[in-house]
Amino acid sequence: MRNKQIELLVGVFIVFGFFALAYLAIQVSGLAFSDKKKSYQIVARFDDIGGLTARAKVAVAGVTIGSVESITFDKELYVALVKMNIDQDVDNLPIDSSAAILTSGLLGEKYIGLSIGAEDTFLSPGEEIYDTQSALVLENLISQFLFNSTTGEDK
Protein backbone atom coordinates (compact mmCIF):
# COMPACT_ATOMS: atom_id res chain seq x y z
CA MET A 1 0.00 0.00 0.00
CA ARG A 2 2.84 2.39 0.83
CA ASN A 3 4.50 1.63 -2.51
CA LYS A 4 1.36 2.66 -4.47
CA GLN A 5 1.22 6.03 -2.65
CA ILE A 6 4.83 6.77 -3.58
CA GLU A 7 4.17 5.80 -7.21
CA LEU A 8 1.08 8.03 -7.30
CA LEU A 9 3.01 10.93 -5.79
CA VAL A 10 5.83 10.52 -8.34
CA GLY A 11 3.26 10.40 -11.17
CA VAL A 12 1.57 13.61 -9.99
CA PHE A 13 4.97 15.27 -9.69
CA ILE A 14 5.91 14.28 -13.27
CA VAL A 15 2.57 15.50 -14.68
CA PHE A 16 3.00 18.79 -12.82
CA GLY A 17 6.52 19.07 -14.23
CA PHE A 18 5.28 18.57 -17.80
CA PHE A 19 2.63 21.29 -17.36
CA ALA A 20 5.19 23.67 -15.89
CA LEU A 21 7.59 22.98 -18.76
CA ALA A 22 4.84 23.54 -21.38
CA TYR A 23 3.79 26.81 -19.72
CA LEU A 24 7.40 28.01 -19.61
CA ALA A 25 7.94 27.12 -23.28
CA ILE A 26 4.84 29.08 -24.31
CA GLN A 27 5.90 32.13 -22.30
CA VAL A 28 9.45 32.11 -23.67
CA SER A 29 8.25 31.73 -27.27
CA GLY A 30 6.28 34.98 -27.09
CA LEU A 31 2.88 33.35 -27.25
CA ALA A 32 0.47 34.10 -24.44
CA PHE A 33 -2.77 32.82 -22.99
CA SER A 34 -4.09 36.32 -22.29
CA ASP A 35 -6.02 38.52 -24.70
CA LYS A 36 -3.98 40.83 -26.87
CA LYS A 37 -3.99 44.53 -26.14
CA LYS A 38 -5.64 46.87 -28.59
CA SER A 39 -3.06 48.29 -30.92
CA TYR A 40 -2.50 50.33 -34.05
CA GLN A 41 -0.03 49.68 -36.84
CA ILE A 42 2.88 51.77 -38.11
CA VAL A 43 5.56 50.87 -40.65
CA ALA A 44 9.27 51.48 -41.18
CA ARG A 45 11.73 50.54 -43.92
CA PHE A 46 15.22 49.20 -43.20
CA ASP A 47 18.16 48.43 -45.50
CA ASP A 48 19.18 45.41 -43.38
CA ILE A 49 17.11 43.80 -40.63
CA GLY A 50 19.97 41.53 -39.51
CA GLY A 51 17.94 38.70 -37.99
CA LEU A 52 14.91 40.65 -36.74
CA THR A 53 11.86 38.37 -36.62
CA ALA A 54 8.12 38.72 -36.39
CA ARG A 55 6.87 39.06 -32.78
CA ALA A 56 10.08 40.86 -31.78
CA LYS A 57 9.47 43.62 -29.25
CA VAL A 58 9.24 47.32 -30.01
CA ALA A 59 10.55 49.46 -27.16
CA VAL A 60 10.93 53.08 -26.11
CA ALA A 61 13.45 53.80 -23.34
CA GLY A 62 13.69 50.05 -22.70
CA VAL A 63 9.93 49.68 -22.11
CA THR A 64 8.06 47.35 -24.46
CA ILE A 65 5.25 49.24 -26.22
CA GLY A 66 4.46 46.82 -29.02
CA SER A 67 5.68 44.08 -31.31
CA VAL A 68 6.69 43.42 -34.89
CA GLU A 69 3.69 42.17 -36.85
CA SER A 70 5.37 41.21 -40.12
CA ILE A 71 8.46 41.70 -42.24
CA THR A 72 8.21 41.78 -46.04
CA PHE A 73 10.46 42.75 -48.93
CA ASP A 74 9.63 45.99 -50.74
CA LYS A 75 10.25 45.10 -54.41
CA GLU A 76 10.28 48.72 -55.57
CA LEU A 77 12.81 50.13 -53.08
CA TYR A 78 14.71 46.86 -52.37
CA VAL A 79 14.40 47.24 -48.60
CA ALA A 80 12.69 45.40 -45.76
CA LEU A 81 9.23 46.71 -44.82
CA VAL A 82 8.53 46.17 -41.13
CA LYS A 83 4.97 46.49 -39.79
CA MET A 84 4.73 47.14 -36.06
CA ASN A 85 1.77 46.92 -33.72
CA ILE A 86 1.95 49.68 -31.10
CA ASP A 87 -0.18 49.54 -27.94
CA GLN A 88 -3.25 51.77 -28.21
CA ASP A 89 -2.40 53.63 -24.99
CA VAL A 90 0.89 54.83 -26.55
CA ASP A 91 -0.73 57.30 -28.93
CA ASN A 92 1.74 60.15 -28.56
CA LEU A 93 4.70 59.11 -30.74
CA PRO A 94 5.89 62.23 -32.62
CA ILE A 95 6.06 61.98 -36.42
CA ASP A 96 9.81 62.68 -36.40
CA SER A 97 10.61 59.69 -34.16
CA SER A 98 13.33 57.33 -35.34
CA ALA A 99 13.56 53.53 -35.32
CA ALA A 100 16.70 51.43 -34.94
CA ILE A 101 17.23 47.68 -34.86
CA LEU A 102 19.06 46.91 -31.63
CA THR A 103 20.36 43.79 -29.90
CA SER A 104 19.76 42.70 -26.31
CA GLY A 105 23.30 42.16 -25.06
CA LEU A 106 26.17 41.16 -27.31
CA LEU A 107 24.53 38.24 -29.11
CA GLY A 108 20.95 38.52 -27.84
CA GLU A 109 17.66 38.86 -29.63
CA LYS A 110 16.98 41.71 -32.05
CA TYR A 111 14.30 44.28 -31.33
CA ILE A 112 13.24 47.72 -32.55
CA GLY A 113 14.10 50.68 -30.38
CA LEU A 114 12.20 53.90 -31.00
CA SER A 115 13.75 57.27 -30.22
CA ILE A 116 11.23 60.01 -29.57
CA GLY A 117 11.27 63.11 -31.76
CA ALA A 118 10.35 66.69 -30.90
CA GLU A 119 7.37 67.43 -33.16
CA ASP A 120 3.95 68.33 -31.77
CA THR A 121 2.07 66.12 -34.23
CA PHE A 122 1.84 62.40 -33.60
CA LEU A 123 1.98 59.25 -35.72
CA SER A 124 -1.43 58.00 -36.82
CA PRO A 125 -2.32 54.39 -37.60
CA GLY A 126 -0.75 53.28 -40.88
CA GLU A 127 1.86 56.06 -41.00
CA GLU A 128 5.56 55.48 -41.57
CA ILE A 129 8.69 56.23 -39.56
CA TYR A 130 11.15 57.58 -42.12
CA ASP A 131 14.25 57.95 -39.96
CA THR A 132 15.56 54.39 -39.55
CA GLN A 133 18.86 52.76 -38.66
CA SER A 134 19.53 49.24 -39.88
CA ALA A 135 20.88 46.42 -37.76
CA LEU A 136 24.54 46.26 -36.92
CA VAL A 137 25.59 42.87 -38.27
CA LEU A 138 28.51 41.44 -36.32
CA GLU A 139 29.79 39.36 -39.24
CA ASN A 140 30.04 42.47 -41.44
CA LEU A 141 31.97 44.35 -38.77
CA ILE A 142 34.44 41.50 -38.33
CA SER A 143 35.00 41.13 -42.07
CA GLN A 144 35.52 44.88 -42.48
CA PHE A 145 38.05 44.86 -39.66
CA LEU A 146 39.92 41.86 -41.07
CA PHE A 147 40.03 43.08 -44.66
CA ASN A 148 40.85 46.68 -43.81
CA SER A 149 43.68 45.70 -41.46
CA THR A 150 45.25 43.22 -43.92
CA THR A 151 45.00 45.41 -47.03
CA GLY A 152 46.26 48.57 -45.38
CA GLU A 153 49.88 49.52 -45.94
CA ASP A 154 52.20 50.06 -43.02
CA LYS A 155 53.66 53.54 -42.80
Rank of each mutant, 00 (worst) to 15 (best):
V43N: 13
N92V: 09
V43T: 15
A56E: 08
K57R: 09
Y111E: 01
G117R: 03
I112Y: 13
V79R: 13
I95T: 03
I116F: 05
D74G: 07
I71L: 12
G117D: 02
S104W: 06
G108C: 11
D48T: 13
S115P: 03
L52D: 03
A61T: 10
A59M: 15
F46L: 06
S115M: 06
D120N: 15
I65D: 01
A118M: 08
I112A: 05
E69C: 00
A44P: 02
V60P: 04
I95C: 04
L81P: 02
V58M: 11
P94L: 08
A54K: 09
I116H: 07
D91F: 06
K57D: 14
D87H: 09
A61L: 12
S70E: 05
N85Y: 01
F73N: 14
I95K: 12
N85D: 11
V43E: 14
D47P: 04
A54G: 14
A54P: 12
N85I: 01
I101S: 09
I71R: 14
A118C: 07
L106Y: 15
T103Y: 08
L81H: 14
D48P: 01
A99C: 06
P94W: 08
A118Q: 12
V43M: 11
L77Q: 06
I65H: 04
G108L: 10
A44R: 00
M84L: 10
E69G: 03
V82N: 04
A54N: 12
V82Y: 01
D48M: 08
L81G: 04
V79N: 11
L93Y: 08
A61V: 06
L106P: 02
G105R: 03
F46N: 06
I95A: 11
D91I: 12
A44E: 00
N85F: 07
I49Y: 14
L93S: 10
A100F: 00
L77W: 01
D89R: 06
D120W: 03
L77T: 13
L81A: 15
V79P: 04
N92P: 03
Y111L: 03
S98C: 04
I95H: 10
F46Y: 12
L102F: 12
S67T: 13
K57C: 09
F46W: 05
L114Y: 06
E119I: 04
F73M: 14
L114M: 07
A59T: 14
A56M: 03
I71N: 07
F46M: 09
I71M: 08
A61Q: 15
I116N: 02
G113Y: 03
I95D: 13
A118P: 00
S70L: 05
E76W: 01
K75N: 11
V43Y: 08
I49T: 12
R55E: 13
L52I: 07
G62Q: 11
L114D: 02
A61P: 03
I116E: 07
